[in-house]
């Protein structure tokens, strides 16, 4: 979680310094979901994400230097600079893709789940999406098929209360995304997305069930997007949280104080984790800066798979 936080905070600085091109959607404040979900997955389990994927990619095990290089559009990037923030992919670690189109990756995850089951493996596919995607037709088409075919897929909705710039109440009468699967008898739960322990427990249960052939499930995590929709968004449509309120909610601080109270680790170790994250990100940035830009010819060389 510290690594994601440090990475994204640094990314925001780099964006402001114009070292990172394009549109950047940050997940600061949502680290607990990425960490608690991806932390329970194997490399053979497949993860798909949406347009806010940095946390999922890092939590799934992608190397920070290559991830940062991709965001900076360098040849050494995960996708050689062809994808950028919204298209981070690291197949080695089972990170199969993100999409810039809301809901676009939902059926892709079904396909991966189907393939895993046909191979007789117990691998599971997880797809992260926002609450905005749940109103798109692709969501209902995908859920019907996932349930009908009992696919090992877990839909993880990060509900930050906003679809792009408008609040959920402007999009639907249904308060909880987990209620959207009410027509189907599948496990669905809504958890506090700032509570890493709760997410870990709830997702873990769904994961075991899916691995055992029990079929799909939906987990909704209520998060708060600390930043605007994209980096640089004037963000006039939301009320800011007071700093005290945020102190209370910050998923990293919460997990840390719970862990300290229970003696899982001490203050020193917590500080080390945070410092290590910062220095790892420094190294990643340094590595990425040294990576050359891609040769222009690359732009037309991988249009078709050979």
């Amino acid at each position: 979680m510290w690594r994601i936080r440090a990475f994204e905070e640094r990314l925001a600085q780099l964006k402001r310094a114009d070292e990172v091109p394009g549109l950047i959607h940050l997940s600061i404040g949502g680290e607990a979901v990425a960490a608690a979900v991806c932390g329970q997955l194997r490399d053979t389990d497949v993860v798909y994400s949406g347009h806010r994927p940095h946390g999922h990619v890092i939590a799934k095990g992608a190397a920070l230097p290559e991830t940062m290089a991709e965001l900076m559009g360098r040849a050494g990037g995960l996708c050689q600079g062809l994808g950028g923030s919204m298209h981070l992919v690291d197949t080695e670690h089972g990170m199969f893709g993100a999409t810039g189109v809301v809901g676009g990756s939902l059926p892709l995850a079904l396909g991966s789940a189907l393939a895993a089951r046909m191979r007789g493996e117990d691998a599971v596919a997880v797809v992260f999406f926002g609450d905005g995607a749940a109103q798109s037709g692709i969501f209902a088409e995908s859920v019907n098929i996932a349930v009908l075919w009992r696919l090992p897929v877990i839909l993880v909705c990060e509900n930050n209360g906003f679809a792009e710039f408008t609040p959920r109440s402007a999009h639907t009468t249904v308060e909880r995304v987990s209620d959207l699967v009410a027509p189907w008898a599948i496990p669905a739960a809504t958890v506090d997305g700032n509570d890493a322990e709760a997410i870990w427990a709830q997702f873990g249960e769904m994961l075991r069930r899916a691995r055992d052939g029990g079929g799909p499930a939906l987990l909704e995590a209520l998060t708060h997007r600390l930043r605007g929709h994209y980096e640089g968004d004037p963000d006039r449509y939301r009320e800011a949280l007071s700093s005290e309120e945020w102190q209370r909610r910050d998923p990293i601080a919460r997990l840390q104080s719970a862990a300290l109270a229970r003696g899982w680790f001490g203050e020193d170790e917590a500080k080390t984790a945070s410092d290590d994250a910062a220095s790892t990100v420094d190294e990643a940035v340094a590595w990425a800066r040294q990576s050359p830009p891609p040769t222009p010819e690359l732009a037309s060389s991988v249009v078709y798979a050979a």
């Binding site: 109103q135 798109s136 037709g137 692709i138 969501f139 209902a140 088409e141 019907n144 402007a170 999009h171 639907t172 009468t173 249904v174």
Partner: peptide, 15 residues
């Protein structure tokens, strides 16, 4: 009812 258009339309109509 298995078309996305069904889901999208009923959501908006209710909203």
């Amino acid at each position: 009812t298995k078309q996305g258009a069904f889901h999208e339309s009923l959501n908006v109509a209710a909203l």
